[in-house]
């Protein structure tokens, strides 16, 4: 596979991943709409797509998927939610990238996803604090860390399960 072909494949796959992320977000929102989830607590299943992009395609593609997710939030939930989504997403992707890059070989996708899930919530909280000009929700952070880690672990376990199968595809080699 030459370089151009590789780039084209990455572009196409990241577009598919972005679409999958949006569809998952939407599905998740419908699924959790009736549940009395505490503020900020979300499964974040679309991070399966983001983590996949980060692991297989690289940081720029993962950032692009995150930006598209935030754009979708802007359209469906307004600027406040979009900014939170973007800040959380960026911090989460960068964490993910670093953890995948240092390749300690110790953390599996479950660990990477759990840590970046927690960072996602920290990023959102930082953005919220900046918006109201006060270190708010610090008391709420434990709850968010708990949910970030828990759901991150869940999406990571999904990745652990599907990655071996996906890596067999000719595309990614």
């Amino acid at each position: 596979m030459n370089e151009k072909h590789r780039q084209l494949t990455a572009l196409t796959v990241s577009a598919i991943l972005a679409a999958a992320a949006l569809a998952t977000s939407f599905f998740e929102r419908t699924l959790t709409a009736g549940l009395p989830l505490p503020p900020g607590v979300k499964p974040g299943l679309s991070n399966v797509a983001v983590t996949f992009a980060c692991a297989v395609l690289g940081l720029p593609y993962a950032l692009a998927v995150t930006a598209i997710k935030a754009g979708f939030t802007l359209l469906t939930a307004g600027p406040t939610a979009a900014l939170l989504s973007l800040c959380g997403g960026l911090l989460s992707v960068l964490t993910m990238y670093l953890l995948l890059k240092i390749k300690t070989g110790r953390l599996s996708y479950a660990g990477v996803s759990a840590v970046s899930g927690a960072m996602h919530n920290i990023g959102q909280l930082a953005a919220a604090s900046a918006m109201v000009g006060s270190a708010m929700y610090l008391s709420w952070l434990p709850v968010l860390l708990l949910s970030g880690v828990g759901f991150g672990l869940l999406t990571g376990v999904i990745l652990n399960a599907v990655m071996p199968a996906l890596m067999k595809l000719k595309w990614f080699r």
């Binding site: 300690t104 070989g105 110790r106 953390l107 599996s108 996708y109 479950a110 660990g111 759990a114 840590v115 927690a118 610090l138 008391s139 952070l141 434990p142 709850v143 860390l145 708990l146 970030g148 880690v149 672990l153 990571g156 376990v157 652990n160 399960a161 990655m163 071996p164 890596m167």
Partner: peptide, 28 residues
């Protein structure tokens, strides 16, 4: 990639999770 197959969680995953939970508990 191969070593990740067939194993959902590794010890290091649990340590990372435990560290964050500890932080959350202390903050709480």
């Amino acid at each position: 990639m191969k070593d990740k197959a067939g194993r959902f969680l590794r010890p290091a995953d649990l340590i990372a999770v435990a560290a964050i939970l500890l932080l959350a508990g202390a903050l709480w």
